[in-house]
Structure formats: structure tokens, C-alpha cells
Design a protein around this nucleic acid. Sequence first.
RNA 1: GCCCGGGUGACAGAGCGGCUAAUGUGACCGACUGCAGAUCGGUUUUAAGGGGGUUCGACUCCCUCCCCGGGCACCA
Length: 470
Amino acid sequence: MAVKVYNTLTRKLEDFEPIHGNRVNMFVCGVTPYDHTHLGHAKTLIGFDVIAKYLRYRGYSVLYIQNVTDVDDNLINRSKQSGVPVPDLVEKFFALQLEEMGALNMDSVNIYPRATEHMKEILDQVKGLIEKGYAYESNGNVYFEVGKFPDFGKLSKQVLDKLQAGARVEVDENKRNPEDFALWKAEKPGEPSWDSPWGRGRPGWHIEDTAMTMAYFGEQYDIHGGATELMFPHHEAEIAQAEALTGKEPFVKYWLHTGVLNVDGEKMSKSLKNFWRLQDALEEYDPGVIRFYLVNAHYRSPIELTEESFEESKQGYERLVETVQNLQFAIKAQARDDRTERDDEIEKSARETIQKFEEWMDNDFNTREAISHLFMLSTKINTALKKGLTKETLEKALSVYDTIGDVLGLFRKELEQDMVVDGLMEFLVEMREKAREEKNFEVSDEIRDRLAKIGILLEDTQDGPRWKRR
RNA sequence: GCCCGGGUGACAGAGCGGCUAAUGUGACCGACUGCAGAUCGGUUUUAAGGGGGUUCGACUCCCUCCCCGGGCACCA
């Protein structure tokens, strides 16, 4: 069975067949580092992180590139406001972004190229587009003449005549036509600039992506991802630049778009000031909960962020984590020697869960459906655990969480082990058990309370005491 | 105005031309329990925006209307 992906370009679910056999070239628009990242950025980047990881799980060799825009209007404006030079802004916010996304286990990107590192390719492309008659120079600016590229709008299904250029942004008077977009912007005083055949200036918004992907992937590649809001004009402009330049289509075989994150019925964005910084979210919630919240929705669906939906994710994720911990505890403390029918049933369910996981992930990366099977398995495991399972079964069951967790980026912390802490805890738990045997609940409760204060939850179960981090 | 999505229980949110319409959360009851915590079982809502069409059969396909979101040259 092949992996199927929903291609925005064709609006159809298609069999995924990379251009070069097993090799997948994948590019996703990164977040411009001029400010803190918020949960909306995370939704998109986590969405593609899962896609890259699943394709690798399926045996593809994925080269995943995410660009870093290190010169643009937002950076320049922020620099003027704050007095911090553009490169310093980039360093600061990009480092923060890596740290925060890293906390969410977003670690599938191979290369983070920067626009300014690809100035030569950018200039070559702009020159090429002028030579081919698709672009023109005007007062040190270079514009792509959209009217010369009849396919413009094929991705977003826009009809050029019906668009209202200047609906939100004023039309530049240097343009021949309002719909033309900038490939190169003439220098303004005090702004970063580079030498070019048209005088000093800087790249337009769309050109860095095509410059980079052609440098790394060649003229055509497999997957381009981004949020739906970037579909027009950004992705449309990329197609125009690339296909006009090379004459080859499609520039990108599969276009994938993520739904946006809404707050109170509106898109989370910096301009609407309704954003929730990742930094702040990470202070309030476990990274696993945030990750779970984001992967427990289909990547293409928009999601509505509410206090309740986040709490719900917390409860749900903790139940899955609980099951992982129950399994770990059982392996250490209560594995049975004799196999029973329960072992057969759990092992069968474990196999089926993996099978369903692959089936649903093959179907346009349906993480939501995949996770629902993990919940069903968890209920079965927790029920079976009351009567006990063999070590072999327990380990097989645990491996399901390991395998799926790897792709979805969940349970990572829980699956790590620390021998020193384990040893210390074993000792403390033994001391407390002695106190309990003597009905000295004052001491036993104090041990538990003190542990609770440092974030360790001690529980008494039918099979003895156990502990876990909260 | 134009283009693109979407409308499913209390809430979140999947799938499917026919099955009992997943799964999760919440609420209630119960089991377990020194307490706490967790887990399990049960219960829980006449659940498909309105209208029309295709079909033996429509939540699913088509048309239309209403409502919500995204985009229209800033943005994940």
C-alpha cells in the first residue's frame, strides 16, 4: 500500500510517488525570526515534522529543508523600532525558535538555510527572469510581471481578473501592474543591502525559497509545505518564478497545506495580538501535552484553541502516558511467568494497533485516527494489567507506544530511564512501605508529600507502590 | 465582490453510498482503596445547518440558500 497525500495543486488524494525513487526532497516555509514563535507556528511545523518522520518510518530517505528568512520587511521594521541590528534579531529569535520547537520534539529538519547565504542564487534567478522577459527593472526594483505567466493562480484557484490587488496593502507605484510582485527591492537608507546589477538592494519575499530549493534539490522536487495562508500569493509566486525560469512543470509535485490555529473564531497571529507564545505555553504545560494537542488533529484541519480543548488534551495525553508508565511498572514489578489468553489478546491488539496506525497514516497522515487506536489499546492494556501479563507481552505492548511515539513525537520523556533516580526511589519506597506495615501513616504520608513537592507522585496500587514524575 | 475550506452529541473532532455514526474530554453511578492517586466498568444527549435532487438506500455524491473561517499581493 502506498502512502496517499492530499495535493493542494490537484485537490485530490494522490498516491505518493517521489520523483527520484526512494529519495524525498521536502521544503517547508520556516518562521521569520523577528519575534517569539507562537502556538500557530508550532501547529504548522509540528505537522510537517510528523510528515517527515512518517515518511522516514516508511523507508523514504527524506531531505527536509526549512528556510530562515534573515532579511525582510518585518525584520527591518522590528530593527528600527528596537534599535537591535537585523542580524542580532535573527540570532536571538532563531535560537529561541530552535529551543522551543526542540522542546516539542521538532527535530526532523536537515538543513536551515538562510536567505543571505544564497544571494548568488537569488541574483542569478532574478537575472534569468529578466532575460526571459518575465521580469522588469524599475528604479532599482525588479518585479515579476504576473500577466506574462498564464498559469498564475493554479495552486490557489484564483482568477487574476477577479482579484483585488491592494485590498490590504498599498500598491507600489513602481509596478507596471498592481498584481506584479517584487523580486528585488531597491535599497532604502539604513537598511541592509547587497550589490546587484540594478544597484544596491535586497531580495523580495518569494525568491529565497526558489533560490534555495534549486540549489539543494534542482529544478523540480517532491513536497512543499506551508500553512494555507501562504498559498496565495507566496506559493503562487514561487511556482511562477520557478516554472517561468526553467520551463519545467510541476515545480513541486505535491503541495501540502496545514490548517490554521484559531482563537475565538479568528486566526492566531501577531497582528491580531491574540497569540499564545510557545515560551509561555511551555511554562504552563508539559511539552508532551502541547505536542499531543497539535498532533491530535488532522494537519489540514484548522483547530480552535480554547482553554477547554487544551485541558482535554492534557487529560487524554496523561491517560496514554499513564498506560506507558503502567507497562513500565509491570515489567519491573509484576510480570507473570505463565502465558494466558490475555497475553494472546494483548499481543494481537498491539499488532492491530500498529497496522491501523500505518493504515491511517498512509491516508494523508491522519494522526487523529491513528491516535484513537492508541486509546483503545490503552484501555485493553489497563484492563489486562489488573490480572497480569507476561514480560514478553508487556514489552511488545510497550514497543507500540515507542514506535508510534517516535513518529508522532510523543512519550519521549517517559520512555527514557535514569538508573540513579530509579535506585534512589526504590530505596525511598521501601522505607515508606516499612512505615506503612507498621501503620505509621504519619511517616508514610510525609514521604509521599515531600516527594509530591518535588514533582514525584507516589501511588499505592494493588501490585504495590509505584512512582512517576508529574 | 471573487477564490478556497468547513457546519456531526454538553464540548472537541474522525470516518464511511448501507453496519451500533469512531475516539477523546466532561458529567453521573459503581468497583478498587488507610488516605490520596490512577485504572476499569456502566450510564449519559431523538448527535449530521435549511431546502431540493441523484439512488433501492445519502451524514457521505450533486445543486441551492444560510452561517462560520481562511486568502485577495504583510504573515506558519
